[in-house]
Amino acid sequence: MDVQEINRRTIAQFRAGGDIDGMRRDRLILLTTTGRRSGAAHTTPMMFHHDGDRLLIVASNVGASTHPDWYLNLEQNHHVFVEVGEEARDALATPLIGEDRARTWAMLKQTYPFFAEHEMRTARIIPVVALTKV
């Protein structure tokens, strides 16, 4: 499976406004981060969860032992660009900490049980990130 090709196709389908192969459009965003080494823009399609006026994303990396590249990028630069539905906007990406993270992570695992499976596969703490409009 070529993940980069799947991502390219998903991004193109999302931006074209039509159906997206194997995914629910209403649960998908495009997150653009700035490369921590290259400085280039990198766009990643991913699932999100609405939480009031913020969007939540999870750096589970399907339970891998390392954080996904998009998360490493936003650790260096919290300013991101988000495409959700028909809206595109600048946003601030803030990893949740403390009680907010604990409460939110518990809710996300209850709502999406596959996150609990991802957590069991890794020893790292899986980051939960809030995206808020700038």
Rank of each mutant, 00 (worst) to 15 (best):
M1G: 09
D2P: 01
V3A: 07
I6G: 03
N7H: 15
I11F: 11
A12Y: 06
A12E: 12
Q13Y: 09
A16G: 00
D19Q: 09
G22V: 11
G22N: 14
D26K: 15
R27C: 02
L30E: 01
L30T: 01
L31T: 11
L31K: 13
G35V: 14
T43G: 00
T44I: 07
F48C: 03
F48R: 14
F48H: 13
H49C: 06
H49T: 09
H50Q: 06
D53M: 09
D53P: 10
L55P: 00
L56V: 02
A59L: 11
S60P: 00
S60C: 04
N61T: 10
N61Y: 09
T66A: 04
T66M: 01
D69I: 08
L74M: 12
E75L: 13
Q76W: 03
Q76T: 07
H78V: 05
V80Q: 10
F81M: 09
E83K: 10
E86W: 03
E87P: 01
R89C: 03
R89Q: 04
D90N: 10
D90R: 10
A93K: 05
P95Y: 04
I97H: 14
I97M: 08
G98P: 02
D100W: 00
R103G: 04
W105F: 13
A106S: 08
M107S: 08
L108G: 00
L108C: 02
K109H: 04
T111F: 08
Y112W: 13
P113T: 13
E119Q: 15
E119H: 12
T122R: 12
V128E: 02
V129Y: 11
A130D: 00
L131D: 02
L131G: 03
T132I: 12
K133W: 07
K133Y: 02
